[in-house]
């Protein structure tokens, strides 16, 4: 402590100012985060009650149970569409295509474009294409397809990176033992790249759970349980958005926020653990 004070006193004024600002602004950033989490938890946990988890939504209980189920359905469906597409296209780019070919560059550019598009644009597109043009209406299927396009670039990029990080000696060994390309990809490369791909998938789950703008006009916002691919519903985030708009349901909105926060914290912890495993593996 004494030493710290001494070095502080020795600093010139401009240096001191920069030093103070560095610490101050960093502290401010994390203070905001802590305050947000603390505020949501303190106000939310008291409102978590059994009535929030009743099977049927009524305007009395504002149950989030149907939203919870719909969220899981949307996550599952979006992943079902986006994961094979994303993983397969990454396999093509890394394992099959000539490195640096024009096609690879084009796909990569389109991927970057997709990842920069804000979610409201996906929402508008989904509403024009899936909801109206294909005639699916505001539905589970339309919402999930919209989100599948949204998370595709994320899955593709993380898969590409983890495939690239698999050492070429694995592939050479497999080819040397007489395995074909396909066998090498599925038996050798993909298992080695598994944790990285999984981390990408988990991040996508986070994006789906947090999404509202892309879903409100594709999935719709019906508070009751969805029944089937072509019926509307709402995810937890949409549920919270609707509750936040009405002062009557502030308590329930806080409670939903708590659950969303827990989901995000859980997802981040999981992907962090996986990332650690990857760095240890190589």
């Amino acid at each position: 402590m004494k030493k710290a004070v001494k070095t502080l006193l020795r600093k010139k004024k401009a240096d001191l100012l920069l030093w103070v600002m560095t610490w101050l602004f960093a502290a401010l950033t994390f203070a905001v985060l802590l305050f947000l989490i603390w505020h949501i938890l303190v106000n939310g946990i008291v409102h978590i009650s059994p009535s929030l988890f009743e099977l049927k939504y009524t305007s009395q209980n504002a149950s989030l149970f149907p939203a919870l189920i719909t969220t899981m359905l949307v996550v599952a469906l979006s992943l079902l569409i986006a994961v094979p597409l994303g993983v397969f296209s990454a396999i093509y780019l890394v394992e099959y295509a000539r490195r640096g070919s024009r096609f690879v560059k084009l796909v990569r550019m389109m991927n970057e474009t997709l990842s920069g598009i804000p979610s409201i644009i996906y929402g508008i597109f989904g509403s024009i294409f899936f909801v109206v043009w294909l005639g699916w209406g505001k539905s589970l299927l339309a919402g999930s397809c919209t989100l599948a396009i949204m998370i595709l670039p994320l899955i593709m990029r993380t898969t590409e990176e983890s495939l690239k990080s698999v050492s070429d000696s694995y592939r050479e060994g497999s080819f040397g033992l007489g395995a074909g390309r396909l066998r090498t990809v599925f038996k050798i490369v993909l298992p080695a790249a598994g944790p990285g791909i999984l981390a990408g998938v988990i991040l996508s789950v986070g994006r789906i759970v947090g999404e509202t703008a892309a879903l409100i006009y594709t999935l719709g916002n019906s508070p009751i349980m969805t029944d089937g691919l072509f019926s509307s519903g709402r995810t937890l985030s949409l549920h919270m958005y609707s509750l936040a708009g009405e002062s009557l349901y502030t308590g329930q909105a806080y409670a939903t926020a708590v659950i969303l926060l827990f989901v995000v914290i859980g997802i981040n912890t999981l992907s962090g653990l996986l990332a650690k495993r990857i760095t240890r593996g190589t």
Binding site: P84, L85, G86, F88, S89, I91, Y92, L93, Y96, A97, F103, L106, V107, M110, N111, T113, L114, I117, I121, Y122, I124, F125, I128, F129, W133, I149, L152, P153, M156, G180, R181, L182
Partner: peptide
């Protein structure tokens, strides 16, 4: 091998297709 290769190429095309569809419909 050939079938899977075709599937991989088609998957790689979806990103291009998606950007194309978004532009056209928007």
């Amino acid at each position: 091998e050939r079938v899977m290769r075709a599937i991989f190429i088609i998957s790689a095309l979806t990103a291009i297709l998606a950007v194309g569809l978004i532009c056209v419909f928007l």
